[in-house]
Amino acid sequence: MLDEALLFKWMAAFDHQIQTDKAYLSGLDAEIGDGDHGDNMARGMSAVMHTFKTPDQSVAEQLKAIAFALISKVGGAAGPLYGSAFLRMSKAATDTQQLDQLIQIGADAIADRGGANFGDKTMLDVWAYVPAMLEHHTLSSAGLAQLAANTKPMQAKKGRASYLGERSVGHLDPGAVSSQELFQALLLAQADLKTSPNPAMKNGTDL
């Protein structure tokens, strides 16, 4: 269940991870792209955290605000990809708040927007596998790390790295790594809510 409390803790944990790893992510991007993924994501997540200052937003409204923050502040390819995912999740959140379904909708939005296939060395190589892991309660930190690591031997078929051809092999995809961090943040937020449910939330433990 994605409720307001989980969404806040999830984004706060992701923001913390992105700000910490800003230079690492940009460094990964410098190997096969243009070297700004960490900086762009950090700018975007600062804007995302700002959206939580608007009080009493539903999950759908909050997801939409997150989407627009990412779309308008991240730029490049990551902005529209992450932004499209959260925008479509926002539309769906009025019907379902089940996490596996929402993430699947987000993954579909990324595939539609970017036109990538599995194995093209993109963030989709992480997103595509997360819904089933959530559904079967097998999402783990190690599993996420493995998904990101899987992009290392892949040859890029989309984005700027694709022009490197075989030279893109042997490098992690920066978008896959930031996506790994997004879902690691979700795990952290879920664990955090179990141990210290938000007192303001009556059903803070119904995860």
Partner: peptide, 12 residues
């Protein structure tokens, strides 16, 4: 004009 070597955003 986007950021250096970075596409402008949809709102712009």
């Amino acid at each position: 004009a986007g950021q250096i070597n970075t596409s402008p955003t949809p709102d712009q």
